[in-house]
Structure formats: C-alpha cells, structure tokens
C-alpha cells in the first residue's frame, strides 16, 4: 500500500499535476508519525501510512496556511474521516474540489493517541469513530489507495463516547454542570483544539475579537466554559467527529463528548450528517421550508 502511495505521489509531482503532497512520515527516531510536505519526486519514499497516522491533515488546506497554498496545487493523503472535513471545507467555500487532489487511503482504524501504540492496534486503543466508521473506503477521492475494506459499522453506534453520552444524558442538570465544569476547569487556553480543527479556519477567532470582548480570555472557570461552549456551538452541524480537538488537548478534556452530542442532535433535528456529500450545504447555513420548527415555543 505504501509503495502504491509513493508511486502515485511521485507520478503526480513529476507530471506537475500537483506541487506538494501533504502526507504522513516518520519522525527522526522513527517512533512517531508526523505531517510531511513532499515537493520533490525523489522524496516520496518518505511517505508512510499505518495505524499511527491519526492526524487529520486537512488543516493544511485552510487559509491559515498561506505558505503552503503558495507552493501550489496540493495532493493530500486522507483517510475517509479526514475526507469528511475536506468535504465540509468545499461546501463552505473554503476550497474547491478541483483545486486539490485527494489521495484517499483505505483504513482499518488508527490509534486514539500515538503514545498508546505498543506494536499492535487493539480495539481498546482505537477511538470511537473507528469502531463506527462508515468511510473506511474513501467516499470522495481522486485516487483510492489500498485494498477495499469490507467493514460494516454497527447499526447502533458503539464505543466509549456513545456510552458516556448516554450516561451524561441521564444525569441531573446539576450533575451534568458539575461534570463539565470539572473538565473545562482544567483548560489552559492553549487553543490546540481550535488549531487542530480544519473547520476552525477563521483567521480571527471570536476569542481574539475584543470589540466587544465576547469571551473572557482568562483561564478561569467562567472564561473556560465560555470558550469551550462557544467553540462547540460554532461546530454544530459542521463537526465531522474526527476527534482531533480531543487528541490535541494537553489536559484531556473529553471534547469528543461535546462534539458527538452535537452531531447526534443535528442528525435528529435535520437528518443531516456533515462531510458526506460535497454538494449538500450544512443545515446551519441554509434555509429549508422543511426545517423542523418545534423548538419555537
């Protein structure tokens, strides 16, 4: 599979169809996977794909990375879940389908965090998204690399995130409040969640806007709650549950719970799942006469 990937990348660079291949490579010690940007055909053997390739590289397609855009047309190595984000970027007008070459890779799951990998991808070190994955075969791609996966996701979503959501839904309001405050209180406002999210592409985030100051920037409980809730709201109907925010969080805030809860809410209310079809706009940015209005009381 890696050979196939390297050959294709080489071909794309040699033909000049793309100027850069955004992919995965090893770090110096060959212990961890890190994003690599290949611009020369002879360097494509640096590309790898394995169960450690957890990063969602679609962040590098956003306008925050002008220097990458300056290199030229990119090809991007993307798992099905990463492609979902690219699809949202297309529906929101952040990139055009024809402006990128998607090197879709078939995937049999990745680790939740690279540090957990001890030579074998056990189900317990995989994130919930992998256990319920419906895009192990890339759904939108220019080239599909790897053998077709015959995995079918379970009827009812399973995994830690879904169990925990049920648990939290059953809590009393005050218990739920305490649960979230306890987690958000650890927030150090490093904004790794935002920076790792390809859908947080605003060049000036609401937390940086100070006329007026919408969110208190201090890492005290009030400011932390405001930040985390506002970010969640800004992702409603857009988040694809790629899990990068939670993976990047240095203080282990269970952000997947917030985001998946919103995914479920939007699915129930609008029957919409983000990241599936690049021609369908997300429900929060379109008006439809069929929209459910039972929230107006």
């Amino acid at each position: 599979m890696e050979n196939e990937l390297r050959e294709k990348a080489k071909e794309l660079l040699e033909s000049g169809e793309v100027a850069v291949v955004i992919g995965y490579g090893f770090n110096r010690k060959k212990t961890r996977i890190t994003p690599v940007f290949i611009t020369k055909p002879e360097e494509t053997d640096k590309l790898v794909f394995n169960e450690l390739c957890v990063n969602n590289l679609s962040i590098y397609l956003t306008r925050k990375y002008r220097d990458i855009q300056k290199i030229g047309r990119p090809a991007i190595v993307a798992k099905g879940c990463d492609i979902k984000n690219i699809v949202v970027l297309i529906t929101e007008g952040q990139t055009k389908r024809e402006d990128i070459h998607i090197l879709g890779v078939t995937c049999s799951g990745v680790v939740y965090k690279q540090e957990l990998f001890k030579g074998e991808l056990k189900p317990e070190i995989m994130p919930s998204k992998c256990h319920n994955c419906d895009v192990r075969n890339p759904h939108v791609a220019d080239t599909v690399i790897g053998e077709k996966s015959d995995f079918t996701p379970p009827e009812e979503p399973t995994g830690m995130v879904f169990d925990k959501i049920k648990e939290i839904d059953a809590m009393s309001d005050s218990a739920r409040w305490d649960f979230w405050n306890e987690h958000f209180n650890r927030c150090i406002k490093c904004y790794a969640c935002r920076q790792l999210c390809s859908l947080c592409y605003c060049e000036r985030c609401i937390t940086e806007k100070n006329m007026p100051q919408w969110i208190e920037t201090s890492a005290h409980p009030r400011g932390n709650l405001a930040w985390n809730l506002i970010r969640a709201m800004h992702l409603a109907g857009r988040c694809t549950f790629c899990g990068e925010c939670e993976r990047g969080c240095p203080v282990n805030i269970p952000l997947n719970l917030v985001n998946q809860k919103l995914v479920l809410t939007v699915k129930n209310a609008f029957g919409f799942e983000s990241g599936i079809d690049e021609n369908v706009h997300p429900p929060m940015i379109v008006f439809s006469e069929d929209d459910n209005e039972n929230f107006i009381k």
Binding site: T34, P35, Y65, C190, Q195, E216, S218, P250
Partner: peptide
C-alpha cells in the same frame, strides 16, 4: 525556517507546558 516549521499548527501547547516560557498578557475583565 519556513520549511522546518511548516507543520506547526500554531497552538500554545508547547509554550504553556514549557518551564521557561514567560510571555503574558495584561487585560481588564
């Protein structure tokens, strides 16, 4: 510089974990 740091996502995780990073902001709330 640009080549070596191209992948940097611009979060503050490194600086907020670093024992010698000293930068701060002064704000009114």
């Amino acid at each position: 510089w640009a080549e070596l740091t191209r992948k940097c996502c611009g979060c503050g995780a490194c600086t907020y974990s670093c024992p010698t990073c000293h930068c701060f902001d002064i704000i009114d709330e």
